[in-house]
Amino acid sequence: MTNGHLDIIRRGSKLVDHLVIGVATNPSKDPLFSLDERVKMVRAETAELAQNCAAKITVEPFDDLLMAFAETIGAVIIIRGLRAVSDFEYEFQMAGMNAFLNPDVETVFLMADAKYQPIASKLVKEIASYGGRIDQFIPKRVAHAVRAQIADRRRRKAAP
């Protein structure tokens, strides 16, 4: 979870009465953390916001198509963050496919704040793997967990 994700969550919570943050498995990515660990992190990082905003905020794992998840929770909109033109091309295509799957669920795009636009979790992971500073990109608790997980992976690789 990056500071950009938190920004979109903060801003998205102003648009709805109930914001469900779906944390997905994604076979095309190599996450540092299990789905359960990522859900716990997102819950921890959004707990204060959830207490201090008008919207109800919940965090739910899912291992299905996004539209199937949206239908299961009764969602009427999906909020997606955009950082760059390349994000838009992919997200636009996904929104079109999702509209075919369920035309009753709208996709709303929020542009990332300019200070968060270059932040990508993949790049944060790469910086961390080389021992670089990541605290300015992700919440402190998450940064600590990322560094610990990378160190643990190194130890396991080095072990005979």
Results as ranks from 00 to 15, higher is better:
residue 51 Q to C: 06
residue 93 Q to L: 10
residue 72 T to R: 14
residue 92 F to M: 08
residue 12 G to W: 11
residue 33 F to G: 07
residue 83 R to I: 01
residue 79 I to A: 12
residue 31 P to D: 13
residue 30 D to A: 10
residue 80 R to I: 02
residue 52 N to Y: 04
residue 73 I to M: 12
residue 76 V to G: 10
residue 67 M to A: 06
residue 73 I to H: 10
residue 87 D to P: 09
residue 87 D to Y: 04
residue 53 C to I: 15
residue 20 V to E: 14
residue 4 G to V: 07
residue 70 A to D: 11
residue 99 A to M: 06
residue 38 R to N: 12
residue 49 L to G: 06
residue 31 P to V: 00
residue 87 D to V: 08
residue 67 M to L: 13
residue 29 K to L: 08
residue 97 M to S: 14
residue 3 N to A: 00
residue 54 A to M: 11
residue 43 R to G: 00
residue 2 T to H: 09
residue 21 I to Q: 02
residue 52 N to M: 03
residue 52 N to D: 04
residue 85 V to H: 12
residue 55 A to P: 04
residue 25 T to K: 11
residue 81 G to H: 04
residue 5 H to C: 12
residue 40 K to M: 02
residue 55 A to K: 07
residue 67 M to I: 15
residue 7 D to E: 09
residue 73 I to P: 14
residue 17 D to E: 15
residue 46 T to H: 04
residue 39 V to E: 01
residue 22 G to S: 08
residue 38 R to L: 05
residue 62 F to H: 13
residue 99 A to P: 00
residue 67 M to E: 06
residue 75 A to P: 11
residue 71 E to W: 07
residue 37 E to F: 00
residue 62 F to Q: 13
residue 88 F to K: 03
residue 58 T to E: 12
residue 19 L to R: 07
residue 49 L to Q: 05
residue 18 H to K: 13
residue 39 V to K: 02
residue 65 L to A: 12
residue 35 L to R: 01
residue 50 A to P: 10
residue 90 Y to T: 09
residue 74 G to T: 04
residue 69 F to T: 05
residue 88 F to C: 03
residue 88 F to S: 03
residue 42 V to I: 15
residue 20 V to G: 09
residue 21 I to M: 10
residue 99 A to N: 09
residue 37 E to N: 01
residue 40 K to Y: 00
residue 56 K to A: 06
residue 53 C to W: 09
residue 13 S to C: 14
residue 20 V to K: 08
residue 97 M to I: 15
residue 62 F to E: 15
residue 27 P to N: 13
residue 77 I to R: 13
residue 17 D to N: 15
residue 7 D to A: 05
residue 85 V to Y: 12
residue 76 V to D: 15
residue 32 L to M: 06
residue 41 M to Q: 14
residue 79 I to T: 11
residue 54 A to Q: 15
residue 38 R to I: 02
residue 72 T to W: 03
residue 40 K to Q: 05
residue 10 R to E: 13
residue 35 L to H: 02
residue 59 V to Y: 08
residue 35 L to K: 02
residue 49 L to T: 05
residue 57 I to G: 07
residue 12 G to C: 13
residue 93 Q to Y: 09
residue 53 C to K: 09
residue 86 S to F: 02
residue 85 V to C: 05
residue 93 Q to H: 13
residue 92 F to W: 06
residue 73 I to C: 10
residue 55 A to R: 08
residue 84 A to Q: 14
residue 34 S to D: 04
residue 20 V to D: 11
residue 35 L to W: 01
residue 28 S to R: 14
residue 37 E to L: 00
residue 13 S to P: 08
residue 39 V to M: 04
residue 32 L to T: 09
residue 25 T to A: 05
residue 11 R to K: 11
residue 83 R to Y: 05
residue 36 D to M: 01
residue 89 E to Y: 07
residue 27 P to L: 08
residue 68 A to D: 15
residue 80 R to L: 03
residue 98 N to W: 00
residue 23 V to A: 05
residue 59 V to R: 02
